[in-house]
Design a protein around this nucleic acid. Sequence first.
DNA 1: ACTTGTAATGTTGTCGGACAACATGATAGG
DNA 2: CCTATCATGTTGTCCGACAACATTACAAGT
Lengths: 238, 238
Amino acid sequence: MDNEFGQIKRVAHLPTRIASEFAKRIYDGSLKAGEKLPTEHALSKSFGVSRTVVREAIAQLKSEGLVETRQGVGAFVMKRPDRQIQLDDAKSMDKNDFQSLYQLRIPLEMEAAALAAVHHTEEHMAALSAALVRICNTEDWGNSGVAADLDFHRIIAESTGNDYFSQFVGAISDRISHVIVIARTEGQLEDVISRTVEEHTAIRDAIRTKDPVMARAAMRRHLIGSALRIGLSIEFYS
Amino acid sequence: MDNEFGQIKRVAHLPTRIASEFAKRIYDGSLKAGEKLPTEHALSKSFGVSRTVVREAIAQLKSEGLVETRQGVGAFVMKRPDRQIQLDDAKSMDKNDFQSLYQLRIPLEMEAAALAAVHHTEEHMAALSAALVRICNTEDWGNSGVAADLDFHRIIAESTGNDYFSQFVGAISDRISHVIVIARTEGQLEDVISRTVEEHTAIRDAIRTKDPVMARAAMRRHLIGSALRIGLSIEFYS
DNA sequence: ACTTGTAATGTTGTCGGACAACATGATAGG
DNA sequence: CCTATCATGTTGTCCGACAACATTACAAGT
């Protein structure tokens, strides 16, 4: 009987309870993007709390990106972010972080190329070729050049037919793109550009053959070359 | 001159401005975990706003997990979540989702094994062996058995010396663990258990040899076996 | 008929006061 | 030294008021 009176749970903070209630409805689809929430006055009546509590609940939901408010109009459910994966970007990335994330990118991109070889559609191939043209045609090897390059990789990930590859590769690309821009700006040579274009072309062509081993090897070759060009010390065991 | 009067920015919502100010200080390290924020009264004085605005700002910070409040005491900066990657878990995972995420897990876990072979310490090996003992000794193949299994994999990821592997593998494990529990509960045989234990042992031993190729192959063998045992249709191109 | 201006009404944003509930520290009594 | 009480401080909730914004309806002018 030594804990007969223990474990009495404190009643949760009212705004948090109300915010959770709405979060649940938003997540389970009962409340759709664009839908207007009841007014603060109505909510305070229906929940039997003061308007202050309602406002603090809405402040929480706003902070979570689930609703937005318009003064004089009301609170509206926001469109859920498509991205199922979020990479923390609060802290800027040092060289070591970048290398570590790039190391993790290697197996993902290689596997993505293999899966893309098996699962791509004609539309994917067309998009890949268009992205290749953008890589070749870029006049700014830094900013739009990197964007075109990473777009090529995103299309490959989409060609896998596996949404997780698409999302992980997308999230990683977003996180590393700024660093790659800097690395490229600091050392661009005509020889480097033509080699990069050649490597991307080889990947596109390998994927087209529908041979996952070849596609994977072409991506491996590119990633090795790319790492060397931007001065990374990456380990390749596959 | 067609947009001379456009782009007039509305002044931002006061609670959001104050919340952002504190978020910035928390992220840049000026405010450390455990530190107490000034009282609501002090904040309303120093920012020149009402207490309501301060409270709504704090509600936002609470929602973002940056601060916690204790009634009668104050608001405290929370320890930053270690996890730099978040996988959305609002929606439950169907068989297809699970297969897709498992497919993505394959290259990561194989590469992690290879890197662990190169970078592990004696402590990592001891932790791996202890996790192996927990796998062998589990009496509940479903719940604690899965936890022990995924712990083994997390330790391998930590042994890579690359924090991103640790975090990605951790995030994926958290997301799939519940599904694996169900899959295991639905079909456990003595033969399956001994085979799983043998595969984990082989991984541990291969990592110990410091040969990344062997470690990678042992992990591959286990992941193929594991996928077959839980009825997944996974592609292996590496 | 169309456009512009104004008024009325509704809704969110902010302010300030009051009290409840909790927490902490100091002091008195046993 | 330990326990109980009191005083003070802080967060949580409620309430009323007004500011700022938004929408709709109506009237006046062209």
